[in-house]
Simulated assay, not measured.
Amino acid sequence: MHRILITNDDGIYSKGIRAAVEAVRDLGDVYVVAPLFQRSASGRAMTLHRPLRAKLVNVPGAKVAYGLDGTPTDCVIFALARFTDFDLVISGINLGENLSTEITVSGTASAAIEAATHGIPGIAISLEVDWKKTLGEGDGVDFSVASHFLRRMARAVLERGLPEGVDVLNVNVPMDATPETKIEVTRLARRRYRPTVEERIDPRGHPYYWVVGKRCEEFEPGTDAYALKVERKVSVTPVNIDMTAKVDFGEVAEILR
C-alpha cells in the first residue's frame, strides 16, 4: 500500500487540502500534516527558536491528520519524524497559482521541495482563482477539475516514478479548465511580480509599509506563466532541486581570476 503525505500553505482547514485528500484517498494511505493557519509566502522557512505544537484534526479520508503551528516545511519534517517514509508528497491544492522562479517564495512549492531533499517525489499543485469570488478557506471555489488532474498525476508518479533529474512537479491549473484541457510541460518564467514597498500613514500619523507587487503581463512562450495565462493550459514544470548552474566551471574560475 502506498503512503501519501498531503500538506499545503493555506492551512489545514482549507477546502483545497480536503479536495486533495478526496482525489487520492484510494491510491494509498493518506496522511495530512498542514499548518494550523495561513502560511503563504513562507518559502522554506523552518521554526527553530520555539517549540512546535500539533493538534489532531478530523479530515475525512485521511488515516490521520495534524494541524501544526509551523510552516509547510516544518510540516514535512514533522511528518517524516512521526510517520517515517512516504512514496509521494502532495502540496496543495493551493488557492491561487504558483508560477515562475518565485516558487522559491511559495510555501506550497517549498513543502514539495523539502520532501525532495529527503528523496521523496513531490507534486505541488495550485489552482488559479478569482479572488473577488473567493472567501475564507476556499468557499465558492470548484476544485473538481484540479482534483481530476492531481489524481491523474499522482497515480502516474506512484506507478512510474519521476524521470531521473526531476524531483518535483509544479502544477498550475486554470480556473476555467475542464478534464479535457491540455497539459503543457513548461519551464519556469523568470518572474511574475515586480515587488516594491508602499508607504501608508496610520491614524496617528505614523508611516507603515506594505510589500506589494506589480504583475508582469507579458511572458515568454514555453514558460509556465505563458501556458496558464495565455494558452489556458495546465502547466506542469519539472523541477530539480540542484540549483547549480549548468555551465563550464572553468569559465567561472576564469572570471574569478
Score class of each variant (00 low, 15 high):
residue 11 G to Y: 01
residue 12 I to Y: 05
residue 12 I to L: 03
residue 12 I to Q: 01
residue 15 K to E: 00
residue 15 K to I: 00
residue 15 K to A: 01
residue 16 G to L: 00
residue 16 G to P: 03
residue 16 G to D: 02
residue 17 I to P: 03
residue 18 R to S: 04
residue 18 R to H: 11
residue 19 A to H: 02
residue 19 A to C: 02
residue 20 A to R: 02
residue 21 V to I: 14
residue 22 E to R: 15
residue 22 E to F: 12
residue 23 A to D: 06
residue 25 R to H: 11
residue 27 L to Q: 00
residue 27 L to C: 06
residue 28 G to H: 09
residue 28 G to W: 09
residue 28 G to V: 06
residue 29 D to H: 12
residue 30 V to A: 09
residue 31 Y to W: 08
residue 33 V to Y: 02
residue 33 V to G: 05
residue 33 V to K: 00
residue 34 A to Y: 08
residue 35 P to H: 12
residue 36 L to V: 06
residue 36 L to F: 05
residue 38 Q to N: 14
residue 38 Q to D: 07
residue 38 Q to M: 07
residue 38 Q to K: 04
residue 39 R to D: 02
residue 40 S to V: 14
residue 41 A to P: 00
residue 43 G to H: 08
residue 43 G to A: 10
residue 43 G to F: 05
residue 44 R to G: 13
residue 44 R to V: 13
residue 46 M to T: 12
residue 47 T to E: 14
residue 48 L to Y: 05
residue 50 R to Q: 15
residue 50 R to C: 12
residue 51 P to D: 15
residue 52 L to H: 04
residue 52 L to D: 10
residue 52 L to V: 14
residue 52 L to P: 07
residue 52 L to E: 14
residue 53 R to T: 14
residue 53 R to N: 14
residue 53 R to K: 15
residue 53 R to W: 06
residue 54 A to D: 14
residue 55 K to G: 00
residue 56 L to D: 14
residue 57 V to R: 05
residue 58 N to Q: 03
residue 59 V to H: 02
residue 61 G to Y: 01
residue 61 G to Q: 07
residue 63 K to N: 12
residue 64 V to Y: 09
residue 64 V to Q: 10
residue 65 A to Q: 07
residue 65 A to Y: 05
residue 65 A to W: 04
residue 66 Y to D: 07
residue 67 G to H: 02
residue 68 L to N: 09
residue 70 G to P: 05
residue 71 T to L: 10
residue 71 T to R: 13
residue 72 P to R: 13
residue 73 T to N: 09
residue 73 T to M: 09
residue 75 C to H: 04
residue 76 V to C: 05
residue 79 A to G: 01
residue 79 A to N: 10
residue 79 A to E: 05
residue 80 L to H: 13
residue 81 A to E: 15
residue 83 F to A: 05
residue 83 F to H: 14
residue 88 L to F: 08
residue 91 S to Y: 07
residue 93 I to A: 08
residue 94 N to I: 02
residue 95 L to V: 03
residue 95 L to A: 07
residue 96 G to N: 03
residue 98 N to Q: 13
residue 98 N to P: 00
residue 100 S to R: 09
residue 103 I to V: 15
residue 103 I to W: 08
residue 105 V to C: 01
residue 105 V to S: 10
residue 105 V to A: 11
residue 106 S to N: 10
residue 107 G to V: 03
residue 108 T to L: 13
residue 108 T to S: 12
residue 110 S to L: 06
residue 110 S to V: 12
residue 111 A to I: 08
residue 111 A to M: 00
